[in-house]
Amino acid sequence: MVSGDDRPTVLIVEDERALIELYVRWLEDDYDVRTADGGEAALEQLDEEVDVVLLDRLMPGMSGDEVLSELRSRVPECKVAMVTAVEPDFDVIQMGFDDYLTKPVEREELLETISRLLSRSTFASLEQELYSLAAKQAALRASKPAEELNDSEEFADLERRVAELRERIDDALPSMENDEFVAMVRDIEGGNETEFDGSER
């Protein structure tokens, strides 16, 4: 998820030049920032390095919705926040966005949204790792008697890793709101994120 220099990458898609400049100024200290002034330019800027996309829904040319579905199919694990002039309902989640920002976007709000979207990615990948470990643990429990497991170094190590992982998961996303919950379940059902590759992070 994190690119070469360890800073997450944010792609801003916005047709108003002045807004792009403003967002870049707010973000460039913490993130690698890429910009695009329309849908086609956005897709040119897109690759696996991109962690978060800010997408203006109403742009001339390719619509935000078209860009979104293209983004999703090319880099399924990146998080996309819709930037909109009108306050939406839960629908944005069902439409496939991960979050939304209403214009005018304020600095704090923008930074918070990006950081929560990144936390959500971390949570999801740790949580997939937890599933692999829990399944392994369950398989051992089902195949070996309890006494044997108590003496097993491998099992003790597994238990330690599970406990440690649980702590990291709690730290990654200490609170979860309703709309966030819905978006995360949608991602789980859609397989809409990176498969855990088994490596330690």
């Binding site: 949580e127 997939q128 937890l130 599933y131 829990a134 399944a135 998961i169 996303l173 979860m176 309703n178 919950f181 995360m184 379940v185 789980i188 059902e189």
Partner: peptide, 14 residues
């Protein structure tokens, strides 16, 4: 099972 585990994990976190 995998989907269910992950769903329950997110649900219990909520």
């Amino acid at each position: 099972l995998r989907t269910m585990f992950r769903f329950l994990h997110v649900f219990t976190a909520r």
